[in-house]
């Protein structure tokens, strides 16, 4: 069982964080597309904090003695998922930025050639 103090701290921290990100999406300061994984992690964390039975059940299934370790493990899992999604986005942006730079270079040369023809 989780200690009730830990439960209260976790729950209030996760809830305020959840409200904060939803507010930022509402104000268009974050893209919903990149936030979904955060929302999903926060909701999952809330669920396992409110239902101590859930944490207990996972602990038993995985033979983890202290349920709080299961909590840490799930937090690490969420963090890895989020960092990996960032790497994915970064790779995609790398390709997009280089393609843009290449096209921009070619277009600048073509403008240069047009100017020369007009003279």
């Amino acid at each position: 069982m989780l200690d009730y103090r830990l439960q209260i701290v976790l729950l209030s921290a996760t809830l305020s964080f959840l409200i904060y990100i939803i507010d930022m999406v509402r104000n268009k300061r974050l893209e919903l597309h990149y936030i979904i994984i955060w929302l999903f992690s926060a909701i999952a964390l809330i669920v396992i904090t409110i239902l101590p039975g859930a944490l207990h059940l996972i602990s038993q299934l995985l033979h983890i003695q202290e349920p709080v370790n299961t909590l840490f493990m799930s937090l690490i899992f969420f963090l890895i998922m989020i960092i990996f999604s960032l790497t994915k986005i970064l790779s995609k942006n790398f390709v997009r930025v280089s393609t843009l730079a290449q096209e921009l270079g070619i277009v600048k040369l073509e403008i240069e050639q047009l100017k020369r023809q007009m003279k």
Binding site: S98, A101, Q102, L104, G105, I106, K108, L109, Q113
Partner: peptide
């Protein structure tokens, strides 16, 4: 002819 890229690729 010269293509000048806006950054180092």
């Amino acid at each position: 002819e010269i293509i000048r890229l806006p950054m180092n690729l």
